[in-house]
């Protein structure tokens, strides 16, 4: 690793949850939700984090923002180690790191007016003047008229409310926004509106995005680079153009193949994956994907692969791609 401080640098980040104590059961293994991930993000860049539910992508994002205390590893944001910051310093730093949540109905307080929801970031961070003007400007930026200030969340549609969620995230001019499945709760015709809005804001404000999604086609469309997670680990990371054209990990290939396509006619050679994602409290030995991998070899059951560079900027953790 170089000494020059990059925008965001995540090194060997781990988050293990302690096991639930069940009476008369010896369940002592912790759930390894995030098990040593490393990546960097440049200013203004968008990284997609994909994987099935339970692969640890949301925990990774929450741990990165220190909404969860990491078990080990470090996160450097603009050269500062987030783990070493005090509560006050961290709160100050959070102005620059914001989050957009999946379900706007559960992430926006139903008892408060939209104006109050959008005033909160300013109030928390000690702004006193011109807050009302700022709120109206924010609404305008996300394509809502100022009439919405007196509404409550139940008076709005999912798409409109997600716009409020985005407005709240950009209120304090963050440089990093973590978007956790921002469109998956929305109707198909509304998803495009929200994706377009985020693309416009990204261009206008130069925000770097960590975009968490299970939707491979939206990730290809929205992201510069893509990291694929499986059982708490990154198994492949590359530019989005490269990873969709030349997926190197069998899991990535299966994910891309499994997207039901409108492009009829083209029958892809499908790599099929059987079974379910294993229990993250007892991940398989060797390569954690070997239990489902259609290309599995003997060595995969014994040796654990590490991320290796197979092309410029394209890293993959698969024994079959080594040597």
């Amino acid at each position: 690793m170089t000494d020059s401080p990059s925008f965001l640098e995540v090194r060997n980040l781990k988050k293990h949850f302690p096991p639930r104590k069940i009476i008369l059961q010896n369940n002592t293994a912790p759930v390894r939700a995030v098990d040593g991930i490393s990546f960097t993000l440049k200013e203004g860049e968008t990284l997609g984090l994909v994987g099935e539910s339970g692969c640890g992508k949301s925990t990774a994002a929450r741990t990165l923002l220190r909404l969860e205390i990491p078990t080990s590893g470090s996160v450097h944001f603009k050269g500062k180690n987030l783990a070493s910051l005090s509560e006050t310093e961290l709160r100050n730093q959070r102005k620059e790191m914001q989050m957009i949540f999946q379900d706007p109905f559960s992430s926006i307080n139903p008892r408060r007016k939209i104006s109050d929801v959008l005033r909160e970031p300013f109030v928390i961070h000690g702004f006193k003047e011109n807050i009302s003007e700022a709120v109206v400007k924010l609404l305008d930026q996300v394509g809502l008229s100022s009439d919405y200030v007196n509404r409550y969340s139940h008076e709005m549609s999912g798409g409109q409310l997600q716009r409020v969620g985005i407005a709240r995230a950009i209120a304090l001019n963050p440089t990093l926004v973590v978007a956790d499945e921002p469109v998956s709760a929305l109707d198909v015709s509304i998803q495009a509106q929200i994706i377009n809005l985020m693309m416009d804001l990204r261009e206008k404000l130069g925000i770097a995005f960590l975009f968490i999604s299970h939707d491979m086609s939206i990730v290809e469309y929205f992201c510069d680079r893509v990291a694929v997670m499986y059982l708490g680990k990154i198994v492949e990371i590359a530019s989005s153009e490269e990873i969709y054209k030349r997926p190197a990990h069998p899991y990535t290939e299966a994910l891309i193949n499994a997207v039901p396509g409108i492009e009829s006619g083209q029958q892809k050679q499908k790599l099929k994956v059987r079974g379910d994602i294993p229990d993250p409290s007892s991940p398989p030995q060797g390569c954690s994907f070997h239990t489902r991998c259609p290309l599995k070899e003997k060595q995969c059951e014994e040796m654990e692969p590490n991320l290796k560079e197979v092309a410029s900027g394209h890293y993959v953790a698969c024994l079959l791609k080594e040597g």
């Binding site: 998803q191 939206i218 969709y244």
Partner: peptide, 12 residues
């Protein structure tokens, strides 16, 4: 409905 979805493999 058809065109509001990004298609996999469509060059962006």
């Amino acid at each position: 409905l058809i065109s509001s979805r990004p298609h996999l493999g469509s060059t962006r």
